[in-house]
Design a protein around this nucleic acid. Structure first.
Lengths: 109, 109
DNA sequence: TAATATCGCTACTTATTTCGTAGCGACACT
DNA sequence: AGTGTCGCTACGAAATAAGTAGCGATATTA
């Protein structure tokens, strides 16, 4: 069976494709961080920028587009907000906070 | 260049520092993927490489060093394995598989 | 009304990260 | 000695992120 599928979609069962896409999205600088900051409040462009270590506006702009396209955030008059999907993602990622603390203790960065 | 400090340590309360370090680690290409592949079995260098879409050996090598330094993986005669810490991280990341499927349904990448 | 300030965002250059390939020395098997 | 595979490194090219200046729009103050 020859296949025209992209490399990353070739292997892995159908249940594995989705998670690879997630790794692709979250495994990019700033995406997790942006979601994390938006978890508590909605933020304006410059507000978000300042919270994310004053990341460059050009990169922030492309990230916002990506995350919007992926339906994880959306724009309102009060600023950027997480969508339902985005909120549910942050919920699954919540245990990470606790793990991080434990990890910090043991590894002592 | 304004500051020699790592990005994640500049800002954020003491309770937030750990999670920022995690974002820094996981928000790098391949790190999540490598952990994911090692969750089921231990793998050799070239085995791991093939499972990760034949990623370049130079990058894999630096990733392995990073993850080893962070005490998430370690080397054995049978190949690379997750540490206890690494295993617990993958456990917290497990719900992501389910979320990914749901996300795929709704967004239809 | 006009000057000033801040906003979201773009354009552009420079720095950093990742990719892709070739190949080394070590070990195994023939 | 010849062939194969191993973990891994070197190095140039390509892709991505950082850094800075500034535009047009709106809000604010004089």
């Amino acid at each position: 069976m020859t296949t025209p599928l992209p490399r990353q979609l070739v292997r892995g069962s159908s249940s594995g494709v989705a998670i690879m896409a997630v790794f692709d999205l979250l495994g990019r600088k700033w995406n997790m961080r942006i979601m994390w900051e938006l978890n508590s409040t909605s933020l304006s462009f410059r507000g978000l920028q300042k919270r994310c270590d004053s990341m460059s506006p050009s990169v922030l702009n492309t990230r916002i587009k990506q995350l919007t396209e992926s339906e994880l955030i959306f724009t309102t008059s009060e600023g950027y907000k997480l969508t339902e999907l985005g909120l549910s993602l942050m919920n699954t990622l919540n245990p990470l906070r606790e793990w991080a603390a434990e990890w910090e203790d043991k590894v002592a960065k």
